[in-house]
Amino acid sequence: MHRTVFTTPVVNTLLRGLSIAYLKLTGWRVEGSLPEVARKSVLIAAPHTSNWDLPYTLMVAFALRLNIYWMGKQSIFKAPFGGLMRWLGGIPVNRAQSSNLVAASADAIRAADGPLQLIVPPEGTRSKTRYWKTGFYYIALGAKVPIVMAYMDYATKRSGLGPLFQPTGDVDADMAAIKVFYAPFKGKNADQFENVN
């Protein structure tokens, strides 16, 4: 995987301090920590309802000392911001040609030399959607890594890492169990997060 702000010495330390200070000043509480067994993992990013989710996610990742990568639609990686987005951990996704994205993502996690947490929003979009995409699930299953149930609750200003979830291969039962955890959380645009099967 490419170098990011999370693996850049000095800058990482500076941005971690600024992130912690900003979150504290604005009333956000960061919760949880990444267990050693989840150094390589897939993080669910939910609810995902606003462009504000990205900067808050990056700040929480700094506070928790994570080494994250995240997927974003290809259009946000165009000039002049493409290089910056990649440095922030972004991986461009062409939604029209994403058939091998799951396998490639699983391979990248397995091949990584050090810690790597891949953040995937199950809604696949900030817009309102009734059904969650299962890409995050199959990436974790293929890479043989746990899913970390990360959350951002704008209603209570809490964000962090919830429990680990090990995919069993029974996608219907597993997705139902995961969605139970996310039921209480509210996104910035709460009406756009519909936690249904």
Rank of each mutant, 00 (worst) to 15 (best):
Y56A: 06
K40F: 00
G72D: 09
A183T: 14
Q117Y: 08
L64W: 07
G90D: 06
S105K: 01
R126Y: 01
Q166C: 12
A46E: 02
K128C: 15
L161W: 08
P184Y: 04
F181E: 01
A79V: 13
A79M: 13
I119K: 04
K128W: 14
I139M: 12
L101W: 06
K40A: 06
S105R: 01
R86Q: 10
G27N: 02
S19C: 11
G160P: 02
P184S: 07
G27I: 06
L88H: 03
A176S: 14
W52F: 09
A190D: 12
V145C: 01
A112H: 11
R86H: 08
Q74K: 11
N67F: 11
F6L: 08
H2V: 11
R39I: 08
Q74S: 14
G90N: 01
P122V: 00
I109C: 04
F193S: 12
V171W: 12
A61K: 00
T49F: 03
T13Q: 14
F136W: 01
S98N: 13
D191F: 11
D174E: 10
Q117T: 07
F62M: 11
L88R: 00
N197T: 12
R110Q: 13
Y151I: 06
V148R: 02
W132E: 01
S99V: 15
T13P: 05
I76A: 10
A108H: 04
F6P: 03
W70C: 02
T8A: 09
Y151P: 01
I119N: 02
L58M: 10
L54V: 13
P115G: 13
F136N: 05
F193E: 09
N189M: 13
K186G: 07
L18T: 11
G160S: 08
M175H: 00
F77K: 02
G187M: 01
T7S: 15
